[in-house]
């Protein structure tokens, strides 16, 4: 791997377009094959939330020490406004890995294609990912990318800084955090504890609109499709019905309801 050691860092952020995870559950539909979530009007496409945190982490590094941020996204179809959002936040370049065969990849295939693209980009110091994609909640692709490239992997970071050729990160633990470091090139996955991603500026949106993404297909990357065969196969996908009968306690007014609730819970020996 060719790694440049300039003053400023080359940062690659991997972002995924996903169905809005905060759409109401009732808006989700399973398609006829029973294996994927169907497009539906109530569920728009958004950038994976943790990937926005990763973009923010990259921008903070760039603000502090300079750097060039390339956004990398893999899929079979993209909404321009979704995948261009990181550019409007301040990222520099966008590379789209787009191919019909990328429509049905598991974590292994995803990591393989992304790692091939990273090899092709060649010059990078730091790869930032989200801690997990909110569609399949796998939290696996980044580990796979790092394995396939043989680079260090730090997961679930709330702070990422670079210091010379070393990345230093705070890794979230239950009830605290752990400071870890690794030589670059390295990969770090970012969590929401990092803090709110910045809003795109008007100027950012206009610049992003003019930027043309670089698009690579499976052939451009020289990927042998046989290697993309699923290791994890989906047998069934379904929407569980949750409807516990809730006993609604209704008093004369809100205060009375609160009092009655306590009495009811005592009756049930819950308090």
């Amino acid at each position: 791997m060719a790694v440049r050691r300039d003053a400023v860092a080359n940062i690659i952020v991997c972002v995924k377009q996903v169905p809005d995870p905060e759409a109401p559950p009732s808006a989700f539909r399973i398609d006829d094959g029973g294996k994927r979530i169907a497009d539906s009007p109530g569920v728009s496409s958004v950038l994976n939330g943790f990937d926005e945190n990763a973009v923010e982490a990259a921008l903070r590094i760039k603000d502090a020490a300079g750097g060039r941020i390339t956004v990398l996204s893999l899929g079979s179809a993209f909404a321009a406004d979704v995948v261009k959002k990181p550019l409007s936040m301040g990222a520099d370049d966008l590379v789209l890995l787009q191919d019909e065969t990328f429509d049905d990849l598991d974590s292994y295939g995803t990591a393989l294609v992304l790692s091939e693209a990273l090899k092709r980009i060649g010059e990078f110091d730091l790869v930032l990912c989200g801690r997990q994609a909110s569609d399949w909640d796998n939290a696996q692709a980044p580990l796979g990318i790092a394995e396939l490239l043989g680079i260090p992997c730090i997961t679930v970071a709330q702070k990422v800084e670079i210091n010379g050729g070393v990345v230093v990160a705070e890794r979230v633990l239950s009830g605290g955090y752990e400071v870890v470091e690794a030589d670059m090139p390295a990969l770090v996955t970012v969590s929401n504890e990092l803090g709110e991603p910045r809003y795109p500026t008007l100027r950012g949106i206009m610049t992003a609109g003019r930027k043309q993404p670089t698009v690579w297909s499976a052939d451009d990357l020289g990927i042998d499709r046989a290697r993309l065969e699923r290791r994890i196969r989906i047998m069934d996908l379904f929407l569980p019905v949750r409807d516990r009968q809730c006993e609604v306690i209704q008093g004369e007014d809100d205060a009375d309801s609160g009092r009655l609730l306590a009495l009811r819970l005592r009756e049930e020996k819950l308090i």
Partner: peptide
């Protein structure tokens, strides 16, 4: 949909009396 017991109301009124 997931609760066994509930109060539909403003917490600032419900919680103190609860």
């Amino acid at each position: 949909k997931e609760a066994s017991f509930g109060v539909v109301g403003d917490w600032s009124k419900v919680l103190p009396s609860f």
